[in-house]
Amino acid sequence: MSGETIITVEGFTARYGERLVLDDLSFTVKRGEVFVILGGSGCGKSTLLKHMIGLYHPFAGDIRVGDASVVSTTGAERDALIRRFGVMYQSGALFGSMTLLENVCLPLEEFTSLNKAARELIAKMKLSLVGLAEFAHLMPSEISGGMKKRAAIARAMALDPEILFLDEPSAGLDPITAAELDELIIQLARALKITFVIVTHELPSIYKIADRVIMLDARAKKIIAEGDPATLRDTHEDQWVRDFFNRKSQATGTTGEDDE
């Protein structure tokens, strides 16, 4: 870890119409780290992620990657900025009319001038990285949910992004597949020096993968804890935060209502 800041979020505020979702957040992500956004259901984790990748426009504040603002750059500059990201959506969001191989090939086809054989080789390499090489010619509808998520990671990595955003990578997976996915994330972070921004609430995988976490609170709409997970569990001043990391329930007080 070089310690150099890659993403800066400053005074970020998000609203859905009248409803305030997140209020005045500021934090930074350093190059090469696995950064986890954590919090109870409905506290705005996915909302924050979608703002960071530039899908939504924030109500206030700025999000910068290096020196470029995700919020205010436009045109070709923005395209170049977006291309530094890889995104895996909660459902995988593979294109249903294409095979896995074509899905991974698509960004290569659009943004490089490699020939077909080279593109397909790269796509197959990325698929084998996530353990799906033998399924390359299946359609997304023919594979399981966990495989879809892994294929989506392969697609997100097609153009060798600097930053990979993963939205709930291990939600809905069995413990073994989830653990494999965690291994994969650690390997990729270490070998390819990719910065990861991950939204999750799977505690076991957080301990395993996270260099740093921020924890959002649905009521305060702010960051209530920031640091590495083991330290937060043992020393954070807020009882609720310690209990969260220890997986203790509390008779009083809830984290929020339904999921976003």
């Binding site: 979608k50 990748i53 530039g54 899908l55 395209d79 977006i82 291309r83 990201f85 995104v87 959506y89 909660q90 459902s91 969001a93 593979l94 294109f95 249903g96 698509l106 960004p107 659009e110 943004f111």
Partner: peptide, 17 residues
């Protein structure tokens, strides 16, 4: 519409397509 619900449209946008 189904692609939109499945976040596929978002995926296109964040791929820069």
């Amino acid at each position: 519409g189904t692609m939109k619900v499945n976040e596929e449209i978002d995926a296109f946008t964040t791929m820069g397509l």
